[in-house]
């Protein structure tokens, strides 16, 4: 079943907005996010807490519960607009064509069901039946993510695995149906560095071998830089800068990206004060007018009271009135 879009983007998100209608007011968690992703491409979606990076991930899968709602925009996946899709059809894609891995495998796996049964249920949900078939497929993906002695481990419960192994199981479940797109929300944040390195190496192999696209949601610029082809930096519900990972991190155009890079102790001289971004992230209930980063930005002036447009040069995009490295340019 090949579609005409084989060489085009696999995923095209256009002007997506997800708002939460709370008693305290409307929270614009995601507000006009656009990006696209090719088959086999890895995109890092970076931001701090409350930037909207996770809500973006959930929105792609239609996993937004009231009081939240996707209020506008489209998510074209393999030629279909997921936002307009009826829930029943979306459910057929979710977990099969698009899968998701979450931060904490301890809460996403069912503690009272064996790994084997959970995998069988995930397979049966999308029509793969038969003891033999489900078993073979489960063992194959568990082995693929580096779980030793997988056939025997099918009988184990989640608590019998270490944190790193549990995350591998969660990744294996996501891979059961050979998804075209995997969304991973901070999948290594809760893990130790040595285990994180194992998972990152594993992820890179998976993307190369299976050709799936990956959205890696993270706050950690270093893991993103070592994994992602492209990066999108979010702040207060919007993408403020996007482009090829190395180019963006080497010479960022948005002052927020610059600030994040300067905040990393690994890049500073030991013992010296870090260059810090002053202030805190604004409340999404009371965003400043115009550019949300302006109150913390060293270059802000009165022009920043108007929302800057997302400027694109075909390769890189930024949303800033005073982009770095482009001074003098129109």
């Amino acid at each position: 079943m090949t579609r005409p879009s084989q060489n085009g983007p696999l995923l095209e998100v256009d002007d997506l907005a997800t708002h939460f209608f709370t008693r305290a007011g409307v929270i614009r968690a995601v507000d006009g996010v656009s990006f696209s992703l090719k088959r086999g491409e890895v995109m890092g979606l970076v931001g701090e807490s409350g930037s909207g990076k996770s809500v973006t991930g959930f929105s792609l899968l239609g996993l937004i519960d009231p009081p939240g709602r996707i209020v506008s925009g489209s998510v074209r996946f393999d030629g279909q607009d997921l936002v307009a899709l009826p829930p029943a059809q979306l459910r057929r894609l979710r977990g099969r064509k698009i899968a998701m891995v979450f931060q904490d495998p301890a809460t996403t796996l069912n503690p009272v069901v064996t790994i084997g049964d959970q995998m069988r249920m995930a397979l049966e949900a999308h029509g793969v039946r038969g003891e033999q078939r489900t078993r073979e497929r489960s063992v194959a993906v568990l082995t693929r993510v580096g779980i030793p002695d997988a056939a025997r481990r099918l009988k184990a419960y989640p608590h019998e695995f270490s944190g790193g192994m549990r995350q591998r199981v969660a990744i294996a479940i996501a891979l059961l149906h050979d998804p075209a797109l995997l969304i991973a929300d901070e999948p290594t944040t809760a893990l130790d560095v040595s285990i994180q390195a194992q998972i990152l190496a594993e992820m890179r192999g998976l993307v190369a071998d299976l050709g799936m696209a990956l959205i890696w949601i993270s706050h950690d610029l270093a893991t993103v830089s070592s994994l992602a082809d492209s990066i999108a930096v979010m702040y207060a519900g919007r993408i403020v800068e996007a482009g090829p990972t190395a180019a963006v991190l080497r010479d960022p155009r948005h002052h927020y990206t610059r600030g994040l890079l300067d905040s990393l102790p690994a890049r500073a001289e030991p013992g010296r004060d870090l260059v810090q971004i002053p202030g805190t992230t604004p409340s999404l209930l009371a965003l400043p007018p115009g550019c949300a980063f302006a109150p913390r930005c060293p270059r802000a002036d009165e022009t920043c009271l108007a929302m800057p447009a997302l400027v694109s040069d075909g390769l890189r995009r930024h949303r800033c009135h005073h982009p770095l490295g482009l001074e003098g340019a129109p």
Partner: peptide, 12 residues
């Protein structure tokens, strides 16, 4: 442990 820490990659 030092080898496990991801580093910021700035080359294409």
């Amino acid at each position: 442990l030092l080898d496990s820490v991801p580093k910021l990659m700035l080359d294409d």
